[in-house]
Design a protein around this nucleic acid. Structure first.
Length: 658
DNA sequence: CTGATTGACGTTTTT
DNA sequence: CGTCAATCAG
């Protein structure tokens, strides 16, 4: 134990050994934060606290898994003797599984993803007769999210509206929430919002959960939103043994409701807070760090700090300009090819970071051409692909046919003769008799109102679903083989061949189906009591993290391509930060719109720069294709700011000609 | 009901 | 340049 602490610098050591009371660790980029958190868990246990009574909250599932693993190695204990490491969302799912019945939801609730939420929002708007053009489903969703984030119920929203549009949205919110409850579904915000509701309405229930943990630590605290703060505050209220770690300069999730003020005002929320600053950076060269330090001084509203470098690399920074994005990609890849093929640099040491998900296209093309191995992380997720979503919808219908969103998705996929009119009749009937769509089918068949052909199609569909519903339920150990049979029976392979012309597409899409089967099989083998519902809940929570080949990807010896957002928390010996242009970084939307926040874009840039250990190349293109036409791009203002140069006025003009 | 064609339209990040 | 919804002819 003692030699472990000897590896640390004095501030780190203090953070690791302060075991009780409120503790705020302001940890700059590359200051050994992860090590501090893990060591502190070990110290807590050494001081006599039961591992199971320690709660550690991280931001992503990936981070949770990693910390779980590190802690395991450090403590050398079995899984059951390790602290609970969870994300806010998975923590809430654990709580809701036990408690959600109190709110009138089924214990086997489904978690809706973004697409499902949009469908639900669309029906809610239709129900209250709001035309699409005055409010889009997305608009409604963002208002709902804002309300939920502040703990506001539909009723409270109705009473506090400001203006006609908000009044409509409040009605939509009410309808949406009713629809969700009827479907037995919750959205991502609900996981936190409903848990908060439980805690505020039932003191006994809260007390029970408070007693489960003696101490709580939270990573990436700068990214907590209002609900997350309330939740944690409730949990630690009896003892205030809370340690939060974060960096206000890396707050990049404001658009999702995160509020930096939580980390700024932590000492006010928890009186007697001890504050520890970690400013020694062991990651990057002084040249790289100088850019980062200089850049972020342009931000208001932050804990002032300068990171101290411990390495030198006179040639570690390059800034380049290219005529267009194709040339930019070509140049970056040419250099990477030289590095990997001539200098023996492992491709896995290199990362290409960008702002938006359509930027990697050009780089992928060039990397493929140069035959450099690469992995694209995060972007088009496995679970977002059409065929995967279709099949997941089948599984969801088999799991709970009452859930209408997936039912409507696949009722006529592949085409089986159930058209718009038939569906409309069924939906109308379900509404009139206030039944679920699924249950409205048999009575509609009896009246014969559907006509011969459509009637047969509907009863055929019901028979199909019921057959597989039974098979999934009866053979939970054979979920994957049942799925294979289902894919066969609905003729999905043939459907793919009809849908896409090229043979390469057929192969690709069919492999995807195979991967889904693999994912189910993996779930089967690692779970003691597999169920269809269990698999579905796991995939919706883990989302992109649970992609079948994800682990291989992270380990893979390939150049890593990812967005700045998904690069947070990672580091690479060599980083290419591309597309440094006004309009991309900072993104157009942050500079032109009223709610725009350029400071957050600056922090995003800061995150990008501080990912690099030894070498950083920043590049930009003078023109970029947009909708088929080349457009002139100004250099990013951040390029000037980070070098301590004045920003030329034309850069900020937002030249919009095409 | 299905499959094909046309036209409008769009700029971000994701637990 | 793509995508997706609306429209139209079998």
């Amino acid at each position: 134990m003692t030699d472990r602490l000897a590896e640390l610098n004095p501030s780190q050591r203090e953070a690791v050994t302060t075991l009780s009371g409120p503790l705020l660790v302001l940890a700059g980029a590359g200051s050994g934060k992860t090590r501090v958190i893990t060591y502190r868990m070990a110290e807590l246990i050494r001081s006599g606290i039961q591992p199971s009574r320690i709660l550690s909250v991280t931001f992503t599932n990936k981070a949770a898994r990693e910390m779980q693993e590190r802690a395991g190695k450090l403590l050398g204990k079995s899984r059951s003797e390790r602290p609970l490491v969870a994300t806010f969302h998975s923590l809430c799912v654990r709580i809701l599984r036990e408690e959600i019945a109190a709110l009138g939801y089924p214990a086997n609730f489904t978690i809706y993803d973004r697409g499902d939420q949009e469908s639900m929002a669309r029906t809610a708007l239709r129900d209250i007769r709001v035309p699409e053009k005055s409010m889009k489903p997305g608009d409604l969703l963002s208002l709902i999210s804002k309300w939920k984030g502040a703990g506001v119920s539909p009723e409270q929203a109705r009473d506090a509206v400001d203006g006609d549009l908000e009044a409509l949205a409040a009605a939509g919110y009410r309808r949406y929430q009713q629809g969700m409850k009827a479907a037995g579904a919750v959205d991502f915000d609900d996981l936190l919002y409903l848990t908060d509701r439980l805690f505020t309405t039932s003191p006994e229930l809260l007390a029970r959960h408070q007693q489960r943990f003696d101490t709580v630590q939270i990573d990436e605290y700068q990214d907590t939103n209002g609900l997350q703060f309330r939740l944690i505050e409730s949990l630690v209220r009896p003892h205030h043994n809370i340690c939060v770690v974060g960096d206000d300069d890396q707050a990049i999730y404001g658009w999702r409701g995160a509020e930096v003020r939580h980390i700024l005002a932590f000492p006010q929320h928890f009186p007697g807070t001890k504050i520890i600053r970690l400013v020694d950076n062991y990651r990057s060269t002084s040249q790289i760090l100088a850019l980062a330090n200089q850049l972020v001084t342009n931000n208001r509203n932050r804990h002032a700090k300068q990171l101290l470098a411990h390495k030198d690399g006179p040639l570690s920074v390059k800034i380049k300009e290219h005529p267009d994005e194709g040339t930019e990609a070509l140049d970056v890849v040419r250099e990477i090819t030289w590095l990997t093929k001539q200098k023996g640099v492992p491709p896995g040491d290199i990362a290409i970071l960008f702002r938006t998900n359509d930027q990697p296209r050009a780089f992928e093309t060039e990397l493929r051409r140069a035959q450099v191995p690469y992995v694209l992380l995060g972007s088009q997720s496995f679970f977002d692909r059409r065929e995967i979503r279709d099949l997941l919808a089948y599984l969801r219908v088999c799991s709970r046919p009452e859930d209408e969103i997936p039912l409507l998705r696949i009722i006529n996929v592949p085409p089986r003769g159930i058209g718009a009119t038939t569906i409309e009749k069924l939906v109308g009937r379900a509404q009139k008799t206030s039944q679920r769509l699924w249950n409205a089918m048999p009575p509609a068949l009896q009246t014969g109102e559907l006509g011969q052909a459509a009637g047969n199609a509907i009863s055929g569909f019901r028979t199909l679903i019921e057959k597989y519903r039974r098979q999934f339920a009866e053979n939970p150990r054979a979920l994957s083989t049942t799925l294979e049979k289902l894919i066969d029976e609905i003729g999905y392979h043939a459907e793919i061949e009809k849908q896409y012309e090229q043979a390469t597409q057929h192969e690709l899409r069919k492999t995807m189906l195979g991967e889904l089967v693999t994912a189910v099989r993996q779930y089967e083998s690692r779970t003691t009591h597999p169920t269809l519902h269990g698999f579905l809940q796991e995939t919706s929570l883990g989302g992109r993290e649970d992609e079948p080949d994800k682990d291989d990807k992270l380990q893979a010896e390939g150049v890593k391509l990812m967005t700045l957002h998904s690069a947070k928390g990672l580091e690479f010996p060599r980083v290419y930060l591309v597309g440094m242009e006004e309009g991309l970084l900072p993104h157009k939307r942050s500079t032109s719109e009223r709610s725009g926040d350029v400071d957050e874009e600056r922090r995003l840039c800061y995150v990008g720069v501080t990912r690099a250990r030894e070498f950083l190349t920043i590049s930009r293109a003078q023109t970029r294709m947009k909708w088929g036409k080349p457009r002139v791009c100004q250099p990013s203002r951040f390029l000037f700011e980070m070098q301590g140069l004045p920003v030329p006025p034309q850069v900020l003009m937002g030249d919009d000609r095409r």
